[in-house]
Design a protein around this nucleic acid. Structure first.
Lengths: 189, 189
DNA sequence: TTGACATGCCTAATCGCATTAGTCAGACTG
DNA sequence: CAGTCTGACTAATGCGATTAGGCATGTCAA
């Protein structure tokens, strides 16, 4: 009754994203995706390059959305304000879209799959720009960006794995972490 | 000729650890482990509780080894010296035993599997102790421990995923990150 | 309007891995 | 020496990925 036009690649990625966010990135199987889009598993091969292709497209989608979320959060802010906003938005994204966030953690080396490599790199450009704008000297920029990103990613990852056993507020810990990094940034600027 | 005494649980975990470190934690399958210990897959069920059991034991093993490595690295040092040593040992461990390190990232919540939960928590006790010894006030201790651990874990994780595309030295970035955290610690002590 | 062609989905079949059931031989004990 | 326990094995099931081959429907030119 409904679908005359067939399934598209976007439909597949949308379905995969829904599954990833609801039951986990590791539960994204072709069988599950096929069921979600209303088709038999083999039919997906007409649209994507197998399971690995789905994961790759999901990583690409994740990179785009993270980049968008981050740049929006920094828009209109400057210096450490922008950085603070970026940090909190980063964590918010990871909590709201856990599957998509996980999809973005795909390991890619420069040689293979340049498109994905570039997209994942672009996702943190807003952080780099904000740090630069905040006055971090050029020689330190890459190091500080790595530090900032490591802190955010590590926190979010440990939080997801329920690695924080103590009763202290996790929100407060995150705020402390962000301020710690920001004071380091101020020290350099 | 050799094996009269049958396979033991430890043999299985040893084999799984070898596989994890050599080809990746996600490639630890019962089929691979069975081949490694020289037995058919179903035979493993006499020693471990399926694939999930192997992963759990591997996480337990990982927690022990991380704890041992960290406490040894801090032994005989004090204050920020101890913390610096811990940080570098942490990264070294993750690089040398990637599969075991990955195994320790298993998500566990307090209710289920208290033994593993406690073991994973114990792994970072050396960090907590060193921070405390370095003069971090009690109210800040948990937050700073979380920050320290987040930074280390995040860095190591991004490094593994080849997330650092820029040509700048990754060793140097790590050193910067550690010093940034340490200056935060000094600010509190 | 019609028939060749392309598109997209389907069924059938294969393969690898996890897991369960049921069997068997050898080591250990009384 | 017989009984029993242990630990490995083969057989069988189920699920997910993937490939091969076939069928229906919609497009488009003559």
């Amino acid at each position: 009754m409904a679908r005359k036009r067939g399934v598209t690649e976007d439909d597949v990625v949308d379905a995969a994203a829904r599954i990833a966010d609801s039951i986990g990135h590791d539960r994204v199987t072709l069988a599950a995706v096929a069921a979600e889009v209303g088709v038999r598993p083999p039919s997906l091969y007409a649209h994507v390059e197998g399971l690995d292709g789905v994961r790759r497209l999901l990583a690409l989608r994740a990179a785009e959305e993270i980049e968008r979320a981050l740049s929006e959060s920094a828009r209109g802010r400057e210096g450490t304000d922008a950085l603070r906003a970026l940090a909190h938005r980063y964590r918010q994204f990871a909590r709201e879209r856990p599957g998509l966030y996980a999809a973005a953690q795909r390991a890619v080396r420069p040689g293979e799959d340049d498109e994905l490599y570039r997209a994942l790199g672009a996702a943190i450009v807003p952080v780099l720009e904000a740090l630069s704008q905040a006055g971090v000297p050029r020689e330190e920029l890459v190091h500080i960006t790595r530090a900032f990103r490591s802190a955010l990613h590590g926190f979010v990852e440990l939080e997801r794995a329920s690695g924080f056993g103590m009763p202290e507020s996790v929100d407060e810990s995150f705020a402390h972490l962000v301020e710690l990094i920001l004071s380091g940034v101020r020290g350099l600027a």
